[in-house]
Every structure is written in structure tokens, then in C-alpha cells.
Design a protein around this nucleic acid. Structure first.
Lengths: 212, 212
DNA sequence: GTTACCCGGTACCGATCGGTAACATACAGC
DNA sequence: GCTGTATGTTACCGATCGGTACCGGGTAAC
């Protein structure tokens, strides 16, 4: 089956008909971004043409180019959207557990477990995009800034939870997570499936600062 | 500068003229594989066309297709070559330290350090290829088998060095390494640069089995 | 010499790529 | 009614993609 023929965006919402109705009710720009997100992630940004995206978005190439001046700009928007959502998810996790940094850590690990067991057939969409994109592509800056920000926030989280040497711990946790995501699609599915247990062990056995 | 115009394969050997002479002296098939390896790694397998490879190999498209029946077959050969070399490197490291499993472990970490500090502008070539290639591509099987093999050999190495729970240790080391390689090109160069120290700390502090 | 083989060069194929021009339609505000 | 804006439709552009046909030259075997 060719990429252009794929139209199974029903999985975005609940039941098929309702989801397809909700999808068709959105603006063309939203539909394009949803379709691009799905196709870019499943096949890569290079393998997917703009025409395939437009068709999957129930529109056409002209409308796509009325909202995005080029495919590269669409890629940047796609990447920016993923980065924003990643920030939002972490914001929500932290906000829902403001009373206790330890609960924030635990909630984040629960989220990681959810990511690694459910939505991860093809690894981290941002990392995948970075692999495909040339060094000078504007989307690369967005990706690198997001990953840097994510790492820094982990450091802050572990410091708030009073771990000793939070920088080192954040490095380990960050790299284990990234390694698990890339490993899912290139063999070694075993190690990736065991990373959550490793994280929990790491975070429970790591020395903390004593209370003042 | 377009990809097709890049011809700086002088870096493959020593001085420019000598290296270029050595390069030209090789068979067309060898030159094609060298050029493909360089271009595929730097720009990705999708972004590089067969014509650019042929030009960089100082030959033409017809000769390329006399040695490889399709671009996909060239990709498979490219990936297989990388996997074989990865196996060979590990074989050599283990063979040079057969007298002591601990020395084998140390030598492997030295090798990892070398990889992460020198040859790693764009991460693991096999992982990058896996990201680009569709799930059904024949090269994917080669990559997954290699990564699985590599992980299993790490388990054996750590078991030989009498580490307690070598499977868990291999998981951690494997994922940290993979995470570092993917992180090099998408932000977080910091964590990747510190992974060697992390590995050394991990391997020195991990409990061992006592001698019988 | 002659045969056989490998390689370089060129021109070409159909398909698809990203991107655009031109026109028709629908619908909002007023 | 009219007008402006957003969208759908079609056809098209030049460029490049992977892949091939054809021809000519170099060279080693014998």
C-alpha cells in the first residue's frame, strides 16, 4: 500500500465515525497538522510528500501551501508542535504534584512508563526528525533546544527532590530514556522494555540530602 | 553546496594526494561502497541519490547498477558492512585481552570513549538508517540482528567479568551508549559527553561475584 | 588479432518531487 | 443584493528521482 492511500486517521479519536466527523469538522490547517504528524512520524519527513499529507488531511496541495509557505516550514511547525506538547505534558505532571517533588518524580516515571509501553512504535518523533534533517535545517534548532530544556528541567526536578548530584542523575535518566526510545525500533527491544524498572531502582537507591 | 558536488573523500586516508591515489586505485565497487558509506552517514540514505554516490565514487550510475541491482540492495550492503565491522571491532577488543575479562571490559570502554569523542558527529549510522527505513525494509533485519547480538555479547562479557546480574548491567550500559549516540545530534551534547565517566563509575562500583 | 569482459559516457525513460497559476465554488458580513 | 475571503479542483511547471539502453574504449587472455 502506498503512503498516499493511507487514510486511517480514525484512530485519533474514539469510535470511527465520530472521530472522522470530528476530524472533518476541524479547520484545514488543523487537519493538515494532524495528518502531517501522523505520516511524518510513521514514515519520516523525507518519505512523505506534501500531496500525501494533503490527501490524508481531506484537502489538497493548494490549501496546504496557503497555510505553509513550504514543506520545510510545515516540518518546523510539526516539530514545534511536538516540542510544545512535550513541555505541556511535563508542566502538567509538575503542576499536579506541586506539593511534593518526590511525587513529581514518581509521576514523571509513570508517564515514561506509559510512553514506553504504549505510544512508542517508532521512537521519539523529535529524535527521528533530527536524524533525517540536515544540520542546517531550522527545525534542528527547535529540537535541540527542546532536548536541552528537557534535560535541564530534569536536573531541577531531581534537585528539588533533594537527590545528591542531581546533574549526574539527570544525565543517566535522560540517556537511559533516549536510549530506550531509539532502541525500540532497532533491535534490543528487551533492554527498552526493562528501562522503567531500571529507572525506578535507580531513583529509589540514589542517595539524598538530609533534611536541615 | 549540493550533495552531488561534495567530493572530499580525502579524509579517508592520510595526506590528500596519496589518499586520493589510493582511492582511485580501488575497484569501482569498493569506491562506491566508500562513497555510499560517507554520504549515507552524513546526509541519510533517503537524501542521497545514486548519481551523487556514483560521482563521489569517481564513476557513473551505470557501473553502480552493474554491481548493485538496486539502491535498496546498496543500502543493505552498506548496513551489512557496518554491522560486520562492528562485530570485527568487538572481536578484536576481546581477542587482544583474552587473558582477563576485566581488561576486555576496560578496553571496550576505551573504545566507547574513542567513538564518542571522535567519530560521532551524527550518531550511530545503523540507528540512523533504521530511523529512515520503513519497517519492512530488508536492511532493518540486519540492523536489529546486529544490535541484539551486540547486547547479548555485552551480557556475556559482563558475566565473564563476574559482575552480579550481568543482564541488568548490559541493559544499562547498552541503553546509556545508545542514548549518548542519539543525543549527540539532537541537543543534550552535555549528557553524551559525560557518559564515559558514568560508564566507568557504573562498572567500578557494581558488585561482583566472589571467587570460588 | 580476436575474443571477452569490464568500465566510462550519454541519453533517455516514467514517475514523483516541491511548488504554482488559474478558475470555480462556498459562505461570511453587511 | 454585493463583496471579500477561504477553500476545492485541475492542470501544469522544472527538477530530480531510481533505473535502463546503447555505444565506445581499454585491456587481459589466448
Amino acid at each position: 500500500m502506498s503512503i498516499a492511500q493511507e487514510k486511517d486517521l480514525r484512530s485519533v479519536g474514539g469510535s470511527e465515525a465520530v472521530a472522522e466527523g470530528q476530524f472533518a469538522a476541524k479547520s484545514p490547517r488543523e487537519r493538515i497538522l494532524i495528518a502531517a504528524r501522523d505520516l511524518f512520524y510513521r514514515h519520516g519527513v523525507y518519505a512523505v510528500g506534501v500531496e500525501a499529507i494533503a490527501e490524508a488531511a481531506l484537502t489538497n496541495k493548494m490549501t496546504l501551501y496557503r497555510h505553509f509557505k513550504s514543506k520545510d516550514e510545515l516540518i518546523v511547525t510539526y516539530v514545534q508542535q511536538l516540542a510544545d506538547e512535550g513541555d505541556d505534558v511535563l508542566n502538567r505532571i509538575l503542576a499536579e504534584n506541586v506539593d511534593s517533588p518526590q511525587k513529581q518524580v514518581d509521576a514523571w516515571v509513570d508517564f515514561v512508563e506509559d510512553v514506553l509501553t504504549n505510544k512508542l512504535e517508532r521512537g521519539c518523533a523529535l529524535a527521528n526528525a533530527a536524524v533525517e534533517l540536515d544540520t542546517g535545517h531550522p527545525a534542528r534548532a527547535v529540537i535541540e533546544a527542546y532536548k536541552q530544556r528537557k534535560h535541564d528541567r530534569l536536573v531541577g526536578l531531581f534537585r528539588a527532590a533533594r537527590y545528591r548530584d542531581p546533574g549526574l542523575l539527570a544525565d543517566e535518566v535522560f540517556l537511559l530514556f533516549e536510549g530506550a526510545r531509539i532502541s525500540i525500533q532497532c533491535g534490543g527491544k528487551g533492554p527498552a522494555s526493562r528501562v522503567v524498572g531500571m529507572l525506578r531502582g535507580l531513583l529509589s537507591s540514589r542517595p539524598r540530602l538530609v533534611e536541615a
